[in-house]
Simulated scan of single mutants.
Amino acid sequence: MKWSEIKIHTTNEAIEPISNILHESGASGVVIEDPADLYKERVPLYGTIYELDPDQYPTEGVYIKAYLPVNSFLGEAVDEIKASVSNLVTFDIDIGKNNITISEVNEEEWATAWKKYYKPVKISEKITIIPTWEDYTPVNSDELILELDPGMAFGTGTHPTTVLSLQALEQYTDKGDVVLDVGSGSGVLSIGAALLGAKSVIAYDLDEIAVKSTTINVKLNKVQDIVTAQHNDLLNDVTSEADVIVSNILAEIIVQFTDTAFKRLKKGGYFITSGIIKGKKELVKQDLIKQGFEILEVNQMEDWISIIAKKPE
């Protein structure tokens, strides 16, 4: 299938109204190429798994891109987009250069072109995440390589909540531990725990797609003898005991099973929680204390919080 890429050179002020115009014209999403992104400071430890190409960005203003299928209605749709964007000046919106260009993209090329921007990234002292198609040689013998396909539905593994979780697993997982991963998504935390020496990891998720994604990534990393992916709602009906429970999901969901997590942990076991937006930190922290946990650490990366709690000996 062929797609038409519409690229509009405009201003930051016009991003939202132009995005709305493109959505209303049938684009399922837009791409914003803002040169300010080239100069944003990144946290050195985890950085970003992709590299931005300055040649793809304007020297001033922004590019807004959208994709529409090439069909008999394309010309009419493009004319309507041009008219609607030009009409924004009547609302005192600065549309800048308003240069609009159209180009054709093959679906097959579009599906794979983004891969060239994704590179290996070190996200903790030991763990480096690499996209599956990249050749990578470990820098030292202690480095643990975790392979992911960012084309899957659960991202690249470099979101702050995932990074915080992996860093905590690296600190609190001992060789021979039993680990439960609640809300496994792509399985990145389960795989991380296995690479760190856990003898058994069970990855639970309510989403069947997540269970399949975890299974694929587990095999990709050759830890299928350690990690088992299961369809399950949180820790409901789970009877096994664990040394570590990790959960990178929303704060509102974490507080729904802190009592069960306390019961399923061995004495002295650790409960690693992440996916907590800054404003929900106290909600989770106080609930953990209420259940009997000791709070060991509260860590933050950008606007996200991770809490490491311990079940008393």
Results as ranks from 00 to 15, higher is better:
L169K: 14
M1H: 05
T173I: 15
P312C: 06
S184T: 15
E107Y: 11
A83N: 09
F262C: 07
D177Y: 11
G183L: 05
W133D: 07
W133G: 03
L166D: 13
D233E: 09
K119Q: 15
G275E: 12
I145H: 04
Q291Y: 10
L164Y: 06
A168F: 00
A229Y: 02
L220A: 08
D287Y: 06
I295Y: 04
I289A: 10
L196D: 03
S200W: 05
E208G: 03
Y63I: 03
I216T: 14
D94W: 00
D34P: 10
I95V: 13
S86G: 01
G279H: 13
K115E: 15
I49E: 00
Q56Y: 06
G275R: 10
I100L: 15
E241P: 00
M152L: 15
K310G: 09
L144N: 06
L288F: 10
K175M: 11
L250D: 13
A83S: 12
K263L: 10
K97N: 10
Y57K: 12
T273N: 12
Q171F: 00
N71R: 00
K212F: 09
S4C: 15
T137P: 01
E16N: 10
I253M: 08
V244S: 04
K65S: 15
E294V: 09
K119V: 15
I202N: 08
E252F: 08
T11R: 09
T10S: 08
L22A: 12
Y39A: 03
L146K: 14
K119S: 07
Q230K: 14
L288P: 06
L148M: 14
D205F: 03
L45A: 05
I272P: 02
K290T: 12
D259M: 04
A309G: 11
I95Q: 00
V246W: 11
V246I: 15
T273E: 05
N140P: 09
L164D: 07
V246Y: 12
Y118E: 07
L45P: 00
K40P: 01
G157C: 10
E282W: 00
I191C: 06
P44C: 04
E5H: 04
T11K: 11
I93T: 03
H231S: 13
E41N: 11
I21W: 09
P160G: 02
E297F: 01
L234V: 08
I226L: 08
I145F: 01
R264T: 14
S19F: 01
P58H: 06
Q286G: 02
E51P: 00
D259H: 07
A309T: 12
V43W: 07
G26M: 04
E294F: 04
